[in-house]
Simulated scan of single mutants.
Amino acid sequence: MAVGKKNYQNTILDIAEALKLSPATISRALNNHPYVKEKTRNDVVEMAAKLGYRRNLMASGLRSNRTHTIGLIIPRVSMFFHAEVITTIQNDLHKHGYSLIICQSNDSVSMERELAETLYSSRVDALIAACTLQTVDFSHFDKFVEHGNPVIFYDRVPVEDYKATLIKGDDFKGAYLATSHLIAAGCKRIAHISGPLTSNLYQDRAAGFLKAMEEHQLPVNPDWVFHQELTQGNALFAMQKMFTTGAGPDGLFADNDTSAIAAIEYAKEKGIIVPDALKVAGYSNDPRTAIITPAITSVEQFPSLVGRRIVETVVELLSNDAEGPTYKIEPVMIPVELIVRKSTSTN
């Protein structure tokens, strides 16, 4: 067979004809079988490139019941925490021979349902998902579970029992640490800007905030507790509401760093000195918190560790035989750490 212009419809049979080898040898060489000599493997790879051969992953998947692809659904790629998790997942999965299909729900439940259906139809071997803030019905993931495909929820996870692995940060502890730190720094009137209580994140962070306030016998002003989408605009609205009339809070715990940064900017505009008159703590340890003035105290979530734990779990579950479990019964808890900066400390 003469080797000319690349033909992306060429198959293993064409490579075999060109090299005068059996199709079985070509297949083994392309799959890095240990019994294939290195020279033969190199010849096969080189000829495959010349002919423009592309592996038909769908056909291979139908034969082996594996596609070596993993699906991932996240709220937004632009969020620092998720961007870091994605990078780690993709790099680590590649080391294990898996490709990653990344999908963005834009925090839309309907989009999340569509993406789950698309990934199921694509025959991914496993699904990783950080759900929307409004997801309370997880039935669109049932197909994966019923088919025996591991499902790993991380960060934003089901509150009720579900046959999937949960990998989450210790959000209760993170909120408790941040609020306790504000109290130890002298704050007695502490506000809390939180997210929707439909999400496990903000249920746990709200509980941690309340626990710290209760332990120190400090009153919670209901007018200073906000459960809303954690955007810059909403944070500015909350700050305006708290500081328009009467004495405002002397401490603020915000459930994300975007809100904490917005609070700092509002304080600067209104002449409220941080940390003297108002101390601010955020959540996630976004890189912006270290470069703003004053630098913001925040809770570190260790996104790279989250990504590593996800990959370790996926690989372990996919290595089980057909009778093995497809999920871990106990949640995998990721530790948190409070990073103290100038927004809460005058030292």
Rank of each mutant, 00 (worst) to 15 (best):
L115N: 05
N91G: 00
S343C: 08
E265P: 00
G71A: 04
M47Q: 10
Q90R: 12
N285R: 09
I190E: 08
I89C: 07
S180Q: 10
T313D: 08
V314Y: 08
E269S: 11
E17P: 00
E337G: 00
P150E: 14
T11D: 05
T118Y: 09
N149R: 13
D155Q: 13
T244L: 06
H147Q: 12
R288P: 00
P75G: 13
S22C: 05
H94Q: 13
I334R: 07
P275H: 01
E146M: 01
I152M: 11
H147T: 12
N32D: 15
S105N: 09
V340P: 10
V77N: 11
V136P: 01
V336R: 06
L210N: 13
L236N: 10
P75I: 02
M79T: 14
L51F: 02
V77K: 10
V274M: 03
T118I: 11
S27L: 04
E337R: 15
L51V: 09
G71L: 06
A207K: 15
N7D: 14
L317N: 09
A185K: 15
H227K: 08
S110H: 01
L21T: 03
K211S: 14
N32G: 06
K173R: 15
T258F: 00
V220Q: 11
R28Y: 12
I339F: 02
S64M: 03
E17G: 00
V3W: 02
A59D: 12
I73F: 03
N106L: 01
S194V: 10
L197A: 05
I12F: 01
R189D: 15
Q240N: 14
E114D: 14
Q203S: 06
M111S: 13
P275D: 03
G148K: 10
G307F: 09
N106D: 13
L72G: 00
Q203R: 15
M213P: 00
Q232W: 06
K5V: 10
H181K: 03
S122G: 02
G282P: 03
T346Q: 14
A247Y: 01
L115M: 11
N10K: 05
S27Y: 07
P34K: 13
L230S: 07
S27M: 03
L318Q: 11
M213S: 08
A235T: 02
K173M: 14
L100G: 04
S99D: 14
F209D: 06
L115R: 07
V280I: 14
